[in-house]
């Protein structure tokens, strides 16, 4: 009897371990393909969902970027439960430049360098608790980032 119980426990444990595997795969960050392929801001938001303006997101970009091929962008979010950060450059051929998944234990902070085709607003979109928030900043570009 006791042995059966042990056997059952073992089996149950193995089953539980197995059932966790697909969960882990699901938790992995899926590429927002549709949003990445969108060719305008409207298309990106149509795919991601609508975002409301927030002053809890800090977006740092240069006022004037001499070289549009290398524009440093820093985003940090004070919104509790920030789980994703998206970077959008409005006038780029595909506005969505980068998406970050921020697991618990990592600060809601990322810094990257992006290409900016021409003077236009750069957006930071933050997902927290299933909701989207955004902020934007205009960056003037003297030399576009697409021709090279």
């Amino acid at each position: 009897m006791n042995r059966n119980r042990r056997g059952f426990l073992k089996l149950a444990g193995a089953a539980a371990a197995l059932s966790m595997l697909p969960l882990k795969v699901l938790a992995d960050f899926v590429r927002p393909k549709e949003a990445m392929a969108a060719t305008d801001l409207k298309g990106v938001f149509a795919s991601l969902g609508n975002a409301q303006d927030s002053d809890q997101i800090r977006l740092e970009t240069p006022d004037i970027a001499e070289n549009g091929a290398v524009v440093p962008v820093t985003v940090s979010s004070a919104i509790p439960g920030t789980s994703k950060i998206y970077l959008l450059v409005e006038d780029n051929p595909n506005p969505l430049a980068a998406a970050y998944m921020i697991p618990e234990g990592t600060e809601a902070f990322v810094q990257t360098r992006v290409k900016v085709a021409q003077t236009c607003p750069i957006y930071a979109v933050v997902e927290a608790g299933g909701k989207l928030y955004k902020t934007s900043r205009e960056t003037k570009v003297t030399l576009g980032g697409c021709g090279g």
Binding site: F29, A69, N92, N94, A98, A99, Y100, M101, T106, G145
Partner: peptide, 14 residues
């Protein structure tokens, strides 16, 4: 443990 994951488009700089 995973501390960050990114999905990038071609607009990230060289």
């Amino acid at each position: 443990k995973t501390v960050l994951q990114a999905q990038w488009g071609a607009a990230v700089s060289q």
